[in-house]
Design a binder for these strands. Structure first.
Lengths: 91, 91
DNA sequence: CCAATACATTGATAGATTTCAATGTATTTA
DNA sequence: TAAATACATTGAAATCTATCAATGTATTGG
């Protein structure tokens, strides 16, 4: 995993709303619908959309269209790669 | 590890200069002197000082004064805790 | 003790990020 | 096909971050 990628993932993980989204994603069995996010995050819909985009740009989540809904799924592979990089830092 | 902590560590890891410092810290057997950092990062001394502070504020490195020099050491425990948190996201 | 060295802090500026209101786009339902 | 729903995008304002020049603070050497 190159430095640019690490940078983008780290940035995506550096916001409390986005961390919360990932945590709730686990609670909900790795699958969340967009409108469910507003139940636990007190932000407007565009703000939530923005945060979700940061997460998907970092490949931390998959975005799956389902009719007029959108489903988000955790990409645990990329988390594993990220953790792998962090472990290399320990030498 | 609480969300604030995860946030701060992630933010510290979201800059290429700071990632490079951590990588070089491993190369140099987990111990770097401040003036050595300017050998591989093309920034002024205050900028480097700023980045080092972000890393130490996130507890990613220990700062050890040695006379008029300062030595930086990796805090691998906090990296382990951070990785531990990331693994909980996978459910 | 004075000059030099090593690093930190301050102040300023440019650029990035977060947020919301407004608007756009695709999809479904009536 | 018109209205409603679900989400994305745009534009703008406020805040945060990265950077450098200048300055401050210890510490060491002469």
């Amino acid at each position: 995993m190159d430095v640019r990628k690490v940078e983008r993932i780290s940035k995506a993980l550096s916001d409390p709303s986005r961390i919360l989204i990932l945590q709730q994603l686990r609670e909900k069995e790795d699958c969340l619908y967009c409108h469910e996010i507003s139940d636990f995050i007190d932000l407007t819909q565009p703000s939530i959309s923005h945060h979700v985009k940061q997460l998907s740009d970092a490949d931390l989540i998959f975005v799956v269209k389902e009719g007029r809904n959108v489903k988000y799924k955790l990409n645990s592979c990329i988390l594993d790669e990220y953790v792998g990089f962090l472990n290399t830092l320990k030498g």
